[in-house]
């Protein structure tokens, strides 16, 4: 139960509300009783009701095995999909509804997976942070015969539309391993995000991941360090630039005292400008000071 704003009410309003709620509650109880005898969802999170629908669906599937009855079965399964659609529109985060949808599709020999795939694309353009939908897309990909590698274009499009979208960056990290051929492209896309809005966190996490890959060579890193120093001149108080600069110095110049001093200065500045994570920077600083 998240994000329900508490609105102040007078005692009279409360009494009225309580009366209404009592009426609703009686109706709910009667409904639940009826449903637990005959069973249909009223709240998409009531998992037992979804279980019952699956039991009924299994009965339908097993009793409609003749060719002439397939139409009846696909109508039945189509109605189940429509129901999950209604439930997901009401609550896009309902685990039970997403699972039921996939379960029904899997049990339908005639399932239109391509249509599901297009629906996913459409839904993700409306809410690109719904991880249920991303997970669903991955399940559907396997059915349509699309590989994760084929999703690079979709990922690039999503990121170009909105750099500040952690889910798209995450998705990109799962699509394929970094290779000699693509590393330049990855550095370019992440740099253009960082330079567009250095205060946005998403691309920095992606950068950290790329830098941990041995495929990114010294030359790439030296270039990036230069870029970050330029960016720092425009945005001297952006903590992300300072943090990333420390990663690069640690990788490239951990043995040079003038660079170590620069790293220490960065962490000292971070301690001052980012009080929330002071403990993190102090640990880094102490490690550097005791090693040098």
């Amino acid at each position: 139960m998240h994000g329900r704003l508490k609105v102040r009410t007078t005692e009279e309003q409360q009494l009225l509300k309580r009366k209404e709620q009592q009426k609703k509650l009686i109706a709910y109880r009667m409904g639940m009783k009826q449903i637990l005898d005959s069973r249909k969802p009223v709240n998409p999170d009531i998992y037992t009701l979804w279980n019952y629908r699956k039991e009924v669906a299994l009965l339908e599937i097993n009793s409609n095995i003749n060719i002439e009855e397939t139409e009846k079965l696909s109508n039945f399964l189509e109605n189940e999909l429509k129901l999950t659609e209604q439930c997901l529109l009401a609550n896009p985060k309902s685990y039970s509804s997403w699972h039921h949808r996939y379960w029904i599709l899997e049990h339908n020999p005639e399932a239109n997976w391509k249509k599901e795939f297009d629906l996913c694309t459409k839904y993700l353009t409306m809410d690109d942070r719904n991880f249920h939908c991303w997970d669903f897309r991955r399940l559907v990909l396997n059915k349509v015969g699309i590989t994760l590698g084929d999703e690079i274009k979709f990922s690039t499009d999503r990121i170009n539309i909105n750099f500040s979208n952690y889910s798209s960056w995450h998705y990109r990290s799962t699509l394929k391993a970094l290779t000699e051929e693509c590393v330049e492209d990855e550095l370019t896309i992440v740099k253009s995000a960082l330079f567009t809005d250095p205060a946005d966190s998403s691309a920095w996490f992606y950068l950290r991941w790329i830098l941990s890959d041995p495929i990114v060579n010294t030359e790439h890193k030296e270039d990036l360090l230069d870029n970050l120093n330029q960016l720092l001149e425009i945005e001297p108080d952006c903590r992300w630039i300072l943090i990333a600069k420390c990663w690069l110095i640690q990788d490239l110049h951990a043995d040079k005292s003038n660079y170590v001093k620069e790293q220490i200065d960065c962490y000292r500045k971070l301690e001052e400008i980012d009080l929330l994570r002071k403990g993190h920077y102090s640990d880094k600083l102490n490690k550097l000071l005791s090693a040098n």
């Binding site: 991880f131 991955r138 994760l148 995450h170 990290s173 799962t174 996490f205 991941w209």
Partner: peptide
């Protein structure tokens, strides 16, 4: 990639 975990393999 970020060291975190999701609900299934490759989940955010």
């Amino acid at each position: 990639f970020d060291g975190g975990f999701g609900s299934r393999p490759l989940s955010e």
